[in-house]
Design a protein around this nucleic acid. Structure first.
Lengths: 194, 194
DNA sequence: GTCTATATTGTGATAGAC
DNA sequence: GTCTATCACAATATAGAC
């Protein structure tokens, strides 16, 4: 798989379109033709940029993970304290959800897991590992300075927080409810703050 | 849509097969032929029982919700206290997940939402409403008798618990991890128990 | 209830011209 | 990079015999 930073402008437009389709409909819910129509070119032109669907979606996940890491770094730059950082983290999910109740790319692909090419599953796994690791650090910091309870380890709280956010997008969509990940995150934080 | 209690034995075998396929691969990830092969009959015989895929999957969701309600009633029969009931509730999700990391039928269909027929979305919505309502009751009971914190309302805690469980299945699958919904539920309960 | 046969459309993917 | 044309196959669904 080529790294997304080496992609042409047209290839990036293809990735943009595919990203939205993955969030809306999942790996098996869209076709090359759907992508082509969104970009405004024909199907074989999509194949010119990405030989296979596995290739295309793995690139979508790869770039999504990179954008997420940038956002995480941005949060660290804007907020110093653990609770503010965890709240800003929830905002990342909320912003995605507010865009037509779109799911996290890797949440959707995680659900699709059983039917995906291995290259995609690897990217999804990496996304979750990175998020758990970052949350574990941030929660550990909050526990160390007394802002957060220590009724559970930082790692298990991080896991629960991530799961609650991912689940909130799925449940919010299923309920066709306006309540999204941010609301659930605030409930969670209320029970964990000292 | 016909009610599942009026289905023939062969139709029920079709529903059984389709249920597993939905959990493994989502609405768009399996075909009538996949169902036919699992049941051991031919594709047109599936259409004899369920004219459309929407019909088949709506029935899967309908029956799944009914089975879940039976399980909820079973929990109320076996356990009197709120914490024990909430733990047993998590076991329902864990048992599903332990079967080849299968997802909750309605969690999977909730994620697929954007690409589903309306009849299916209605069943999914009903599933989540019923679960939130039941959890709200059980958590309210725990708050009333002092077993659970009241740092948040019963309804918002119910929402967070349900989201954490659904999300744990998605994240657990994405991480290809053996840690499932039960582990996340115990973390959650540890922070909410008084 | 099950089958064979078929219609129709959509799918991922390729060949080769411009 | 994009296109037209096409392949091979898989999808949902129907007709009609047994």
């Amino acid at each position: 798989m080529r790294h997304f930073s080496e992609l042409s402008e047209s290839a990036l437009r293809v990735v943009d379109a595919a990203e939205g389709l993955v969030q809306d409909r999942g790996f098996n819910g869209f076709s090359y033709d759907d992508v082509a129509k969104l970009v405004g070119i024909k199907k074989p032109s999509i194949h010119h940029h990405f030989a296979t669907k596995a290739d295309l979606v793995a690139t979508v996940a790869q770039r999504y993970t990179h954008k997420f890491r940038e956002s995480l770094l941005g949060i660290e730059g804007r907020h110093a304290q653990s609770p503010a950082r965890l709240t800003a983290y929830a905002d990342l999910f909320e912003q995605t959800f507010l865009h037509d109740r779109r799911l996290c790319v890797c949440g959707m692909l995680g659900a699709d897991g059983e039917s995906l090419p291995q290259s995609v599953n690897q990217e999804v796994q990496r996304f979750f590992e990175i998020n758990q690791q970052w949350l574990t650090e941030m929660i550990g910091q909050g526990q160390a300075d007394g802002a957060l309870r220590t009724s559970a380890t930082a790692a298990t709280l991080a896991e629960a927080y991530l799961c609650a956010l991912e689940g909130a997008m799925v449940v919010g969509r299923g309920l066709q409810s306006p309540r999204g990940p941010k609301a659930v995150a605030l409930t969670f934080l209320a029970t964990v703050l000292s």
